[in-house]
Each structure stands twice: as structure tokens, then as C-alpha cells.
Design a protein around this nucleic acid. Structure first.
Length: 430
RNA sequence: GGAGACGUGGCCGAGUGGUCGAAGGCACACCCCUGCUAAGGGUGCAGGCCCGAAAGGGUCUCGAGGGUUCGAAUCCCUUCGUCUCCGCCA
């Protein structure tokens, strides 16, 4: 949600920022609606004031027993009421229309976001690790001999259709170990607060973080109206929904491991083999709630937290700044971490770390008081994967694969695998 | 699922038709006193929106939505949530 005052004050800057996202200027439409709306509100409020005054006078007249005056005023109020209802409905309609328009406009990129149309224009800012050299042609994760016994797409399809997977044996264990390791790292080393949340949420929460109203088709909704979260960003961020939080409690840094559900509408045909793109997957998600001062700094910190996971696992990656055209709806700036997948011979997204400024906070009405006695301000929010567990599994499997179909596992995982260091070609840990 | 109670400002908590955006307390801010590690006194202190350069004014908000009434935090209906007891249950 955007600050209508900021748009009013500097419409050119607003449109300029949107142009970074390759969007046409909308400020003229907004400003005209806003002007309209304000004049209606003024009129409606003036009418209401008149009615309130008369009503009060009616009470006074009745109090002193002036029946005639009371009747006169009562009739006046009754007549006014109808008039006002009309004015107020008009004002409310314009207000709603403006809110709807604003709700549908994505967040404004910060100045440092590179221009561009799509992922090809993203800019690499860091690279860590060297893609391993193989003396055979590396396979995709689902083709590796040792992976096959524990990654069953046929059975999953029987159970649930396409884009699901059943994991078993060593692969299932590694998958679980990864999530545990990430959670421990963030909680013990990075100081994030371990959190466990519902995966079913109210529409209002999906609006708060920006999934709704525009992107409803990307998520699933139950017959009772709940939404299945596409990421625990939704629940973690909305923990402050509607709150006026203590300044001293900021920053609030949280991490959760959850199931995520995505319809993947619009990605038909993309990444159809393997478990890269599933309707249901696990993710360890980080969210920070900060004050206005520290939002951007926090972004760097969070990116480092995500990178640390890959480094701990010894997985080569590069860090990208997304260009304006490739950024998500709520972000002002996004770092994508792309992990090297030898089977695909390319880097693939494994984490996305976004700074949202006060965009989500406005939608959620989440505020803090910067100084005692001062006016409340909106908090700033950030979210980032740390990491997508399924994709990390893929990366571990592909990067560790051996000619004999086994997989050498990262040291960081050993303690979580009862000391086992390798996924055998038969699918069992050894 | 059945029965009952409740939902008020940052927090706690009064308030059953007008004088209530709302007592009191806590927290917080400033001042005084004391003079020395959390005592006492005073003052201030809800938020959104609209008008205004500002001062200030108007309007809305007592879970949400609707209704009764000249007038509702207060009455009625609906709905959501919380708590208690019973039932069921991982």
C-alpha cells in the first residue's frame, strides 16, 4: 500500500520509481481520484457536522421541554440524514476505489535497483565457491542412481497429481536434516527467534503481505475460506498485523520452517521434471521487523544469513540484485541467491531476500512509536528464504554426486545424519 | 458440537441511551520536591481521515457488519474471536 500523501507531494518521483518496474505512470489517475475523494469527504463531513449539531440541539430542546422546537429539529435531522447518507456513500465509494487502486500497485524500487525487464537484467554482486569439476557428465538430481530409490514422482502423482513428490530412505533423511541444520544455524548463530506458525491463514493476512488481492490464483484457498500460505513470510510478517509494537522490541528477527503451498499457475511446462517446482514444499524462512532507520541495513544482514547456509554446505552460489522488472510485488530491493546445479549446468534461484520498507506495514497497519510521546510510524519488513529446503536438497545431491551413483554429503550435515557421510547408490545412507 | 461469559485507548480496567473519545490505574514524557539505587507531588499523553501555512476546527473509530432512536460504547440482530464447563479428539 502506498502513502497517498507521498504521491500527492511528489507524483513525478512516484511514477519515476514505477517506471523502473516498466510500469506506466499512474499518478494522474491517483491524484484525480484523490482530489475527487477529498472534496466528497469534505462535503460529507460538513453535512454530518450539521446533522450532529441539530441532533444535539434537539436533545437540548427536549431537555427544556420545548416540544415544538424539538419536533422541528427532529424533522430536520431526519431529512438531513437521508441527504448525508448519499454524500457519505459517495465519499466511501471513492475512498474504496482509491484504496483498491493503491492496493494493486507494487512497491517502489529503491534507487540502487538496476533497470531491466526480466531475469536477464539482474546484476551479479557476489560469487562464492567454484562449480565442481566432474570427470563424467553430471546428472540432474532425479537421475542420480542413489537418489532414485528415495524420490518417487509416480507414487506422488497417484496420490496428488503432478508437481508432488514422495521422499524415502536416505533422501528423505537428508531433506529433514537440511531443514534442521538451517534452523539451528539461524537460531544459534544468527540470533533469530525460532517460530512455528499456522499454515492456514485469513484473507486479511494475505492482503497484509501482498499476495492478495492481486495474486489469489497463485495460492490455494480452503472451502472454509482459509488460505494455505505460499511461504511463512505471510505468518511471520503478520505477527505484527494491527499492532503498535514497542520500539525496544525491534528489530524482531524470526525464522520458521514450514510447508509452503503454491498453485504455480502460469508456470505450466516449466521445470516439470524433478522436484525443483512443487505445489507443496518446505522452506526455512526469515523475517525481520525493523524500525525505519535500520531496514536497509537489515537487508544486508539477512542476505548474509542466507548465504551462510550455502557456505556451510559448500554449495557454490552467486548473489544477484534483481532488476526492476524482475522484482516481486512487495519488494523495494531483492537479492536472489542462485546455487550452482551441475545437472542443469547453471545457477538456479534458491533464496530470495527482500526489503519491503513500510509497504506491508501500511497494509497491515503495523506501527511503532519512534520516540516516547511521538507519532506512531510504520515498521519496516524484510523476508528471505534461508533456504528453500527442497531446492537445497537438489543442490546437495547434484553437487555431491559421484560417478558410481552415490552422493558425498556436506560435512555440516553429518551430525544430523547420525554420522553418515554418503548416500549410497542403493539409496541408503552409509 | 452443547451451555454460559466476555471483546473498551500502548497495557489493565470503569462505564447500560445525550453532559463519553471515554473514570481510574499502569507505562511513558516534562516539571517540582527529595538528595541518592524502583519514594512523593504536578502537568501532559488514543488513532485514522478531511480542512488549514500554523494555531486550530471538523469527522470517524469502544471486535466487525447491520438495525432501533432526534441521539448508542450503552438497546436489538448477525458475525468473528477469546475464555469457562460438558462432549469429542491428535
Amino acid at each position: 500500500m502506498h502513502d497517498i500523501r507521498a504521491i500527492r507531494e511528489n507524483p513525478a518521483a512516484f511514477d519515476a520509481a514505477l517506471s523502473l518496474r516498466n510500469l506506466a505512470p499512474v499518478s494522474p489517475e491517483i491524484l484525480s481520484l484523490d482530489a475527487d475523494r477529498r472534496s466528497r469527504i469534505s462535503a460529507a463531513e460538513a453535512a454530518q457536522a450539521e446533522q450532529n449539531r441539530a441532533s444535539k440541539e434537539a436533545g437540548a430542546a427536549k431537555g427544556r421541554g420545548d416540544e415544538a422546537e424539538f419536533e422541528r429539529l427532529r424533522a430536520f435531522v431526519t431529512a438531513k440524514k437521508e441527504e448525508n447518507a448519499l454524500l457519505q456513500a459517495e465519499a466511501a465509494a471513492l475512498d474504496a476505489k482509491l484504496a483498491e487502486l493503491l492496493m494493486g500497485i507494487p512497491n517502489l524500487p529503491v534507487d540502487s535497483v538496476p533497470p531491466g525487464a526480466d531475469e536477464n537484467d539482474n546484476v551479479e554482486i557476489r560469487r562464492w565457491g567454484e562449480p565442481g569439476r566432474f570427470d563424467f557428465t553430471p546428472k540432474e538430481h532425479f537421475e542420480i542412481e542413489g537418489v532414485k530409490p528415495g524420490m518417487d514422482f509416480e507414487t506422488a502423482a497417484k496420490l496428488s497429481g503432478s508437481r508432488f513428490v514422495v521422499l524415502q530412505k536416505g533422501v528423505a533423511r537428508i531433506h529433514r536434516a537440511l531443514a534442521q541444520m538451517m534452523l539451528d544455524l539461524h537460531v544459534d548463530q544468527h540470533g533469530l527467534t525460532e517460530t512455528w506458525t499456522p499454515v492456514l491463514v485469513l484473507s486479511k493476512m494475505m492482503e497484509g503481505t501482498g499476495q492478495l488481492p492481486k495474486f489469489g490464483e497463485d495460492s490455494y484457498q480452503t472451502t472454509e475460506g482459509w488460505w494455505l500460505i505460499p511461504t511463512s513470510e505471510v505468518t511471520l510478517t503478520n505477527t505484527v498485523n494491527g499492532d503498535l509494537v514497542e520500539h525496544a522490541s525491534l528489530p524482531r528477527r524470526m525464522v520458521a520452517h514450514s510447508q509452503c503451498f503454491r498453485s504455480e499457475a502460469g508456470s505450466a511446462g516449466r521445470d516439470t521434471s524433478g522436484m525443483l517446482r512443487q505445489h507443496q514444499f518446505e522452506k526455512v524462512e526469515m523475517v525481520s521487523i525493523t524500525d525505519t532507520e535500520n531496514g536497509l541495513t537489515e537487508h544486508g544482514r539477512m542476505t548474509r544469513c542466507a548465504e551462510a547456509v550455502l557456505e556451510k554446505l559448500g554449495l557454490p552460489y552467486r548473489t544477484m540484485v534483481l532488476c526492476g522488472g524482475d522484482m516481486g510485488f512487495g519488494a523495494r530491493i531483492t537479492h536472489d541467491l542462485e546455487v550452482w546445479l551441475p545437472g542443469q549446468d547453471r545457477y538456479r534461484e534458491i533464496s530470495s531476500v527482500s526489503y519491503c520498507g513500510d509497504f506491508q506495514a501500511r497494509r497491515m497497519n503495523a506501527r511503532y512509536r519512534p520516540e516516547a510521546g511521538g507519532k506512531p510510524e510504520f515498521v519496516h519488513t524484510l523476508n528471505g528464504s534461508g533456504l528453500a529446503v527442497g531446492r537445497t536438497l537438489i543442490a546437495v545431491l547434484e553437487n555431491g554426486q559421484q560417478a558410481d551413483g552415490s552422493v558425498i554429503l556436506p560435512e555440516a550435515l553429518h551430525p544430523y545424519l547420525r554420522g553418515k557421510t554418503r548416500l549410497g547408490a542403493d539409496g541408503e545412507l552409509v
